[in-house]
Nucleic acid binder design. Structure first.
Lengths: 253, 253
DNA sequence: CTAATAGTGTCTTTGAGACAGTATGGG
DNA sequence: CCCATACTGTCTCAAAGACACTATTAG
């Protein structure tokens, strides 16, 4: 093979092939809880394609911007900079998913506390809330406040369905559940979050045992106020303790 | 808002904005088992950048090609069309991950049976095998047959590490484990697959009970041959039985 | 017969569900 | 006192680990 030219010389000569490229976008599933159900923040499209339908906030990825940065920027631009836990979900790249042009979109999950959800609604008036109901086959129905079903644009219903499934799958062994709660919370609030996401009722003593035995929670000695019954203790999420290798490996992403 | 023009009229007029776009690629983690360890198929780079390092097979996504199609095409072009279970893993989009130009790559996991692994090696002579060892913190080391550690190009070590973690996470509740086995297999072979992926020993009676109680397996009444000991019964993977909604929702992707 | 592995029976342990009990706030 | 909810003790049950036992092949 002989001597190889230096990396610097190679790079100077490099001329990137310029075939037609898909556009790259990020879309955000802005997810919070409302009335014991998962809730979304959507934008009603007033232009073609899919005018009148509701869509996930999104935007194109800049040429000098990482995917994470693009998702964070969209959060600022389209949701008034609400604080949210962001994580990549899945990349959708069907050829005809957008009739305008070829767009590959990297869908992200953005989890909002109740306060952040309300703040985003206040700061970005174009956003409209919708509640999410999971159907039997893993698809979802999104409804406006008046109960009317909303039709989502593009493949966004599929993205929302995947977001909910992913959240359900990670809920028990990851810290995502805490992204939907304020800094201090009661065990009942934590259980309410799990029940809302999973759409099931959970056994209270078993749930408490499991959460406390994990060592992720710190009791603060403070108690909720304003109740007409025995106030519950407030806890703080510490973080997932240093994991043994086998624990690290035992669950997926 | 007044009447809206028809969707067809809008589309005819639509002129896609043409900002600079990242290139979109797919990379494949071709994963099989070799000697009780996970094993990869890699291409040794003979050009800058990262000349001499080993890289995942990959290719650009065509403008009229879905991500899945692109991954399948790369499997054909770079792995001799080996049969493999393909699934999307994660999308890597750091700005400087490739010094030549901005490339967003959608990493895929391609699981190969032992036969498919050998066939790919035979049909695509450029491929080189490497065994994967997981380290404590979730990173991986890839070694050539002679035990020498291989340095992977770009962010491919990170991609391989994620692939292994994902596989470990999905192994117990999904059908991915069967993608590494031939049509007919013994329970011991199935357990060997799980032990190789997880890097741990498993309890035999418990493993058998769990697998058989799931109803995913059909005993064939056939037995392995050529052993010098009691031959084990061969089983076939049926498929994951129809799931109740709560089961469908109980685990992530 | 022995060697080696397949496959099973059973005891123990762990963790979840169920359910009833006590504790503590407001009225 | 009442009510409502927090929080706990304990029984039962289901599933996993441990381990020994039987079964079946080659030689």
């Amino acid at each position: 093979m002989g001597p190889v030219e230096s990396e610097a010389a190679f790079l100077a000569r490099y001329d990137p092939a310029d075939y037609a490229r898909p556009a790259v976008a990020v879309d955000l599933v802005l997810l919070g809880l409302s009335g014991g159900r998962p809730a979304l923040l959507l934008l009603r499209r007033d232009r073609h394609p899919h005018a009148g339908r509701h869509a996930l906030p999104g935007g194109f990825v800049g040429i000098d911007e990482s995917l994470d940065d693009a998702a964070a920027r969209v959060l600022v631009e389209k949701a008034g900079g609400a604080r949210a836990h962001l994580e990549q979900l899945y990349t959708f790249g069907a050829v005809e998913r957008d009739p305008r042009m070829r767009i590959v979109t990297v869908a992200h999950l953005a989890l909002l506390t109740e306060a952040a959800f309300a703040e985003a609604l206040a700061r970005a008036p174009a956003l409209q809330p919708g509640t999410v109901t999971a159907s039997d086959e893993g698809s979802v129905t999104v409804r406006a406040a008046d109960g009317a079903a909303l039709t989502l644009a593009f493949d966004h219903a599929e993205i929302v369905a995947l977001a909910l499934r992913r959240l359900q799958g990670k809920l028990d062994y990851s810290e995502v559940g805490f992204a939907l709660l304020p800094e201090l919370f009661t065990l009942r609030q934590l259980q309410d979050v799990h029940e809302a996401i999973l759409g099931t009722r959970l056994n209270k003593p078993a749930f408490r045992r499991r959460m406390l035995d994990r060592g992720w929670l710190e009791p603060t000695g403070q108690f909720e106020t304003g109740t007409s019954y025995r106030p519950a203790e407030l806890y703080r999420f510490l973080r997932i303790p240093s994991q043994t290798p086998s624990q690290t490996l035992s669950k997926g992403d």
